[in-house]
Design a protein around this nucleic acid. Structure first.
Lengths: 129, 129, 129, 129
DNA sequence: GTGGTCTAGACCACG
DNA sequence: GTGGTCTAGACCACA
């Protein structure tokens, strides 16, 4: 996997290690990163994005505890061989369901009509695709 | 304004005071809470939702500093008389733009196609309306 | 929960944070620590056992990710309210099954007869009970 | 000695070289591998179990330093001729004593009663014997 | 008061 | 080379 695929925003409210966890988890669920795929080393990620190795390590450890990654001793981390891509699009959608609900709530509080919201999201979804 | 309109989720990742700030800000921007509308007292909100009064107070203070609320001596807080509803729907949409972008990013990482995402969001937007 | 219940052995091969994770997980599974039971603060554990607060924090975080602990913001950690004691002794036994299998393997390699092994373990199990 | 007697679990928490050291040490202490018994070559072990030759070599070196193995020039490693089987079962039991104590501790933390634990271990000890 | 995050750096274990 | 562990310490966010 290419290090530059990771997008780190140090200023974002979401902690860095969680940004990494979230991105990797989604890219693995979608199959973009297949089982066995080696991950960039802690030091490489840290170096490229100018963050502390421990921050990266923390993200990797959490995903390992989750069973999404596995450690190949002395050789680094890789997508767990036992891990299976989440086939069904419905199941992958569940990962963003809370996000969708929150968005709907806020739109309602703002008394936005559905059309412009859907139109804008549609545009964003088409971008870069 | 009715206290029960506030939805507090103590276990949510978003801090409680920010939940309050966000909700009030949106309900005021949309005009659901008109200028002059009195807000429930800190003690009432804290009592009903079983949270710390300081947390409520903090939210109110932030909105006061923002100019959205004003303190009526001896009568508590109210929506600022000078405050005007954000008329244009486009401008209100800007409040959820970052949310939309983040959602689009995650959908891309999950390799979700636009249709089901839009369909699901559409359903949620219709609900309870 | 009393801090002194935790037994930390800094020299053991098992990392400190894992010792904490293991002990708490077992005491919670057995119901010794009931749902809602508050845990000693990170700083307290660290102070009493002369270890770094982050080491304790790491253990707590892992158990939180596992759903065994929950964070009460500003108030510390507690056994998750949703957590249920593992009722069946059989299920709790599964937590030491790998340990038992490893022990059996080693005993076989050492050509130990079952009796003395069982007798010794029996003695140890009676102790302090 | 037959290579296939070695059981290597690369994913186990115990490092590979220590798995080898432990197994050989126990099989030699019990007399399963008598003095003079030749060991499979580093390359053979590494090839069969698909592990790094250095890992095997490291294990052999440790046991050589311990005096349990000896290097026969040009002929590889063998169980040290001077090595004597640990006759007394009590002495061999000492090799698993820490393991037994740890097991007892965990059983206590899980509030397991002695009977089922002993019964299960008894079953495992009978297996394959 | 609580825990969370991140950094810097040292040292170890493994292959 | 890899990741793991731990420390020390700073700073922040929350209640």
């Amino acid at each position: 996997m290419d290090v530059s695929l990771l997008l780190i925003r140090p200023a974002a409210p979401e902690p860095i290690y969680r940004q990494i966890v979230g991105q990797l988890r989604r890219m693995i669920a979608s199959g973009q990163l297949p089982p066995g795929e080696p991950l960039p080393s802690v030091r490489e990620v840290a170096g490229v994005h100018a963050i502390n190795p421990m921050t990266v390590s923390r993200a990797y450890s959490l995903l390992e505890a989750e069973g999404v990654l596995e450690r190949l001793r002395g050789k680094g981390m890789a997508v767990a061989a036992t891990h299976r891509r989440v086939q069904s699009e419905d199941k992958r959608m569940q990962l963003i369901e809370p996000h969708l609900r929150e968005l709907a709530r806020q739109a309602r509080e703002l008394e936005l009509s559905p059309e412009p919201v859907l139109r804008r999201l549609g545009d964003l979804l088409e971008d870069e695709e």
